[in-house]
Design a protein around this nucleic acid. Structure first.
Length: 312
RNA sequence: GGCGACGUAGCCAAGUGGUAAGGCGAGGGUCUGCAAAACCCUUAUUCGUGGGUUCGAUUCCCACCGUCGCCU
């Protein structure tokens, strides 16, 4: 075994087999998994998020799953905070932390840190949400151009989410976000070996479609009905998850099931493509592309041995 | 066989005698606390084919091919 504690990470687009590989590696190396998926942190969202099942969770400890009620908001910063704690804890116990997930910003927040902006009060956010609605993002962008020209220059007026965030920070802290960003410090030199998973685009798209229907026959709709019955409003943060949004429309009778599934599959493909773009520039130690778990595991282990990890 | 309509990008589709909207899909990219989010860019040297008229045709005319509909 290597003497310095390492952290592993398995990243890549959705539906490439990250969870399965991470589980296999954890068993092999005495590791524990740390979820880095923005939606798997929600309780009750299982089917559609491809959350590891009971068997997997019994076999290996999984951290950062089922943290929140679907109504609660979550964020990259909150994720990074919790992930750091989980990783430290796992390392302390002499085990190997394996971060698994495809939420790029979360991973970046964990590794490179975020601007140390204090939390923006709810009233400020509500105020700006309202202004966005009545004034439109172009007007807000104009204001941002005056108050934080550096940030405004990087954003399109149409990019309401970021324009609003820029103004929120200004309102809440009196300082431009671009200025806060200069104070970003990496969250500590955790030696992380990042394994990237990917698949040929056409194969990936096939798998996405197949999985979507498997989720459906696995009781996806019932799960959503249950959430609604539990009082989760359609506007809940968790319900912006791909598939949930579309299926909710169907349950509301706004479209056929087939239409909802088509939309879901298309949205997932787009998501996978965006992830591909994101991870392409993330410093990944090695890429593995195989639809076969055995093969992935074999290749990954071999690679890690060459890195001096997990050898005997 | 006759009559009529239509034939524009991978798909749907608008259009004008002066040199091709838009949507979908696809591809590429951006990303500092909603990220499974929010955005940006690209995607027909060419309008079924061949002629003709015209300074100029995708647009008008003729023929042919194809599709659809109606009739026989």
């Amino acid at each position: 075994m290597s003497s310095t504690p390492v952290t592993l990470a398995v990243v890549g687009p959705t539906c490439t087999g990250k969870s399965a590989l991470a589980l296999a590696l954890a068993r092999r190396l005495g590791g524990e998994l740390v979820n880095a998926d923005a939606l798997q942190v929600y309780r009750g969202l299982d089917r559609g998020t491809a959350k590891p099942d009971a068997a997997a969770r019994a076999a290996v400890p999984h951290h950062l799953l089922d943290l929140l009620d679907p109504r609660e908001p979550f964020s990259a910063g909150e994720f990074a905070r919790r992930a750091r704690i989980a990783i430290a804890d796992i390392t302390t116990r002499g085990r190997v932390p394996i971060v698994v997930g495809g939420s790029g910003l979360y991973l970046r927040a964990l590794w490179r840190g975020l601007a140390p902006v204090p939390p923006v009060p709810g009233e400020v956010r509500a105020e700006l949400a309202h202004r966005l609605e009545v004034e439109g993002s172009a007007v807000l962008h104009d204001e941002l151009r005056r108050r934080d020209p550096e940030l405004a220059a990087r954003l399109t007026p149409a990019d309401r989410q970021r324009v609003v965030r820029g103004l929120e920070v200004l309102e809440a802290t009196g300082r431009p976000l671009s200025s806060w960003q200069r104070e970003t410090t990496p969250s500590g030199p955790l030696a992380t070996i990042v394994l990237g998973l990917t698949l040929p685009r056409t194969l990936l798209y096939d798998r996405i479609a197949t999985r979507a229907y498997a989720m459906l026959s696995g009781g996806w709709l019932d799960e959503i009905r249950q959430l609604l019955r539990d009082g989760v409003p359609e506007s809940a943060p968790a319900f912006q998850a791909i598939g949930y949004r579309q299926l909710l429309r169907h349950l509301r009778n706004s479209c056929t099931l087939e239409q909802a599934m088509d939309d879901t599959i298309r949205a997932t493909r787009r998501y996978a493509k965006r992830q591909e773009t994101w991870f392409r520039r993330e410093r990944v130690a090695a890429w593995f592309r195989s639809p076969d778990l055995e093969r992935l595991e074999h290749d990954a282990i071999e690679f890690l041995l060459r890195q001096g990890i997990g050898g005997h």
